[in-house]
Amino acid sequence: MAKSDAFLEVDDLAIHFGGIKAVDGVTFSVKKGEVYTIIGPNGAGKSTIFNLIGRIYDPTHGSVSFEGKRISRLPTHKIVGRGIARTFQNIELFEMATVLDNMLLGRHAHLGAGLLSHMGFFPHVRREEERHRHMIEEVIDFLDLQHYRDQRIAELPYGVRKVVELGRALATEPKLLLLDEPSSGLNVEETEDMAFWISDIQSILGITVVMVEHDMTLVNEVSDRVLAINYGKVIAEGTPEEVQVHPEVIRAYLGGDEDEPAEGPKEGEGDGEG
């Protein structure tokens, strides 16, 4: 694979937690502008890959490069400055703050003024604040969140929180967006909205999206390519249609040797490997 056209490049990435090889030599690359989806049974290591890209964990070996530069040694807080934003599987919003404040935190990496000028709240701090707020308004309009702007997260229903978290990620003006199960916990209607937004994010905003998703309808609707993993290893890659009929994938979802249900318990699957 030519390095030059690879936007995000994950090379032989691995992390071991004690005996568990949560991610075990995963290699893939994402092209600029595509929607790339990672699927796999529970405990396959999907979220862990995101946490490795987002530098929450240090990889045991392997590397991650973004726009041709290695990012797998950066401190965690520098990732967003490179243009990578993410959402979390279990929603990590700032509960006691308002929707507006949550989104404004998305602007943190773009701050100019420092602590001392904040203490004085000098005119340039106010002007900067107003500029960021204009940008946030665009995100709020894009996601139809006007109604919730001044509400605290703790007061919001789950579905709205998911959208706010997406909005906060967009507020960082990312080049690459990592979405961990954007549709989990959403009803059918909300999932459809989410699908529209993801396509809009790709086509209108021109942001590259890597997502983890279980809902195959959503996956088929928005993904350009799909990567299937199981027990921390890649088992298939290709278009959504190709991957879905791949024998390894079917076997993984049907639960290996025994006739375990498709969504088997995490622990059981992890132990099987480790």
Partner: peptide
């Protein structure tokens, strides 16, 4: 000064640390 910190990005970053360190860091809060 207290009010200024509370209404400025610094105060916001403080509350981010309080509510979710993981998210704060992912948004660039050192």
């Amino acid at each position: 000064v207290g009010i200024n910190i509370l209404r400025s990005p610094t105060g916001r970053a403080f509350s981010a640390i309080r509510d979710s360190e993981v998210a704060a860091e992912a948004l660039g809060v050192n």
